Computed example of a mutant assay.
Amino acid sequence: MAKIVRGSEGVGQAIELLAAGKLVAIPTETVYGLAADATNGEAVASIYEAKGRPRFNPLIVHVADMKMASDIAIFDSLSRKLAAAFWPGPLTIVLPLRLGHPIHALVSAGLDTVGLRMPDGLAHEVIARLDRPLAAPSANASGRISPTTAQAVEADLGERIPLVLDGGATPVGVESTIVKVESGTVRLLRPGGVAAEDIEAVIDMPLARGATGKVEAPGMLASHYAPTANVRLNVSALMPGEALLAFGSFAVAGSPLATRNLSSSGDLREAAANLFAYLAELDASGAKSIAVMPVPDHGLGEAINDRLSRAAAPRDKPTAPE
């Protein structure tokens, strides 16, 4: 089983393991990431193996500063403006790879671009002290619910990794927003911890939307973030034996097997932070189906609804339009 270690002792152990090419689960402000040295091919391959992750699904690279980021990818004025506004923080920017970059080819899954993010907190400390970029998708089996606590990581991947660095519950609770910067435009690939409206305010233009039909970044599979139970969205009444993922103060008809309310006050930030933990708790209730009340689609609601729609998608579809 994985050791769960907090504080400076945990940071030191994490750095030793990562330097040796091992996997470590680390907390970011979004969810816990399954981290490996992004320059080490065998270490990166261990991420895919531990997660059971499709090889065509690329990994986000986490950096400590702009020098590290600029050694990996080519920034233009627009991408630098985004980095200045939102880093450290829950924004991933997809950029062209720089010639001679140190990132192993498995990280980008054959693409000529890479998703970069600068995390905050303990993850940032680990990367800065290690002085190497880290590939770090969410620390869960591929397609399953992303973990927001060290205990959730241990329950899912504890048999496959040596260490979980415990930083408590993650404050944002959904993965990073992913945007791609190209030809003077910014295209939203995945909604997440930074609201689209906040990005548009910084770049002073609307975000482009719509997929190209190929996987360009993590989280673009149709079925993703999925519990074992089926998920039914936008319900106003329950079926017998269903668990309920509620939102706000309104009631639905029927008697749920179990209930969790993302935010009884209708706070989308609170709802995002609770999403994955509550899905996991309802999944453990024994219900074969989880009914989900409607969630507004503005601000962080866009990211919440994106994750819920992928959790509810048919489990046999390889890719999805945005």
Score class of each variant (00 low, 15 high):
129 R>L: 03
129 R>Y: 00
129 R>I: 02
129 R>S: 01
129 R>C: 03
129 R>M: 02
129 R>W: 00
129 R>V: 01
130 L>C: 11
130 L>G: 10
130 L>W: 06
131 D>K: 11
131 D>P: 07
131 D>Q: 14
131 D>N: 15
131 D>A: 15
131 D>H: 11
132 R>K: 15
132 R>V: 13
132 R>E: 10
132 R>I: 10
134 L>E: 12
135 A>C: 06
135 A>P: 09
135 A>Y: 03
135 A>W: 01
136 A>I: 12
136 A>W: 01
136 A>F: 06
137 P>Y: 08
137 P>D: 13
138 S>W: 05
138 S>Q: 03
138 S>V: 11
138 S>E: 07
138 S>T: 10
139 A>V: 10
139 A>T: 13
139 A>M: 07
139 A>P: 11
139 A>Q: 08
139 A>R: 12
140 N>M: 10
140 N>I: 13
140 N>T: 11
141 A>H: 09
141 A>V: 14
141 A>K: 06
141 A>W: 02
141 A>G: 08
142 S>P: 09
142 S>Q: 12
142 S>E: 13
142 S>D: 11
143 G>E: 00
143 G>A: 01
143 G>S: 00
143 G>C: 03
143 G>R: 00
144 R>L: 14
144 R>E: 13
144 R>T: 14
145 I>Q: 07
145 I>K: 06
147 P>Y: 04
147 P>N: 06
147 P>H: 04
147 P>S: 07
147 P>C: 09
147 P>L: 07
148 T>K: 02
148 T>R: 00
148 T>F: 05
148 T>Q: 10
148 T>G: 14
148 T>L: 07
149 T>Q: 09
149 T>N: 07
150 A>C: 13
150 A>T: 09
150 A>N: 05
151 Q>K: 07
151 Q>G: 12
151 Q>H: 14
151 Q>Y: 12
152 A>Q: 05
152 A>S: 01
153 V>E: 11
153 V>S: 03
153 V>A: 03
153 V>D: 14
153 V>L: 02
154 E>Y: 03
154 E>T: 09
154 E>K: 14
154 E>P: 06
154 E>A: 15
154 E>F: 03
154 E>N: 08
154 E>G: 13
155 A>R: 04
155 A>Q: 06
155 A>M: 06
155 A>G: 05
156 D>A: 13
156 D>E: 14
157 L>Y: 01
157 L>E: 00
158 G>S: 15
158 G>Q: 13
158 G>A: 09
158 G>W: 04
159 E>K: 15
159 E>I: 10
159 E>W: 01
160 R>P: 12
160 R>E: 05
161 I>P: 01
161 I>G: 09
161 I>F: 02
161 I>R: 01
161 I>C: 04
161 I>A: 08
161 I>W: 00
162 P>L: 14
162 P>A: 15
162 P>W: 08
163 L>T: 11
163 L>R: 14
163 L>N: 12
163 L>G: 12
163 L>E: 13
164 V>Y: 04
165 L>I: 02
165 L>S: 12
165 L>R: 03
165 L>E: 13
165 L>F: 09
166 D>S: 08
166 D>V: 11
166 D>P: 08
167 G>K: 00
167 G>H: 03
168 G>T: 13
168 G>I: 04
168 G>W: 05
168 G>D: 08
169 A>I: 15
169 A>M: 15
170 T>E: 02
170 T>W: 00
170 T>F: 00
170 T>L: 04
